[in-house]
Amino acid sequence: MSVLVNLIVMLGMLFVVPAGLRLIDAEGLAPIRRTWLLFAAPGAVALWLPRSPAAVALASVYAIGTLLPAAAAVRRLSCTRSPSAAEAAVLAALAAPSVAGAALVAERSGHELFGFSLEILALTVPHFHYAGFAAALVAGLVCRTAEGPAARFAALSVPLGTLLVLAGYFIDDWAELAGALVLTAGMWTVALLTWRDIRTGGRDRVTRALLAVSAAVLAATMLLALSWAAGEATGLPRPSLTWMAATHGLGNALGFALCSILAWRRLKETKETPA
Rank of each mutant, 00 (worst) to 15 (best):
L223M: 11
G186P: 03
A209T: 01
A209M: 03
A225C: 13
R203Y: 15
L224Q: 14
L224V: 15
A185Y: 11
A225F: 13
T189D: 03
T184R: 04
R199Y: 00
W228F: 12
L193I: 11
A219R: 05
L211D: 08
A220M: 11
L223Y: 09
S227E: 11
V217G: 01
L181D: 07
T184D: 08
A216P: 00
T194P: 05
A220K: 01
A220E: 10
R203D: 15
G202H: 06
A215L: 09
T200H: 07
L181I: 13
R196Q: 03
A219M: 06
S227D: 13
L183F: 04
A209F: 03
T194Y: 07
A216I: 05
T221R: 01
W228N: 12
L192V: 14
G202R: 10
A229C: 09
A209Y: 00
A180C: 02
D204N: 15
W195V: 00
V206F: 14
R205V: 05
L223K: 05
A219K: 02
R205M: 05
S227T: 10
V182N: 11
S227K: 13
L218N: 13
V206M: 15
W188N: 07
R199V: 03
L226K: 12
A212F: 08
L193K: 04
R199I: 05
V190F: 00
I198Q: 06
A220Q: 03
R203N: 15
W188Q: 04
L210S: 06
M222Y: 09
T200Y: 12
T200A: 09
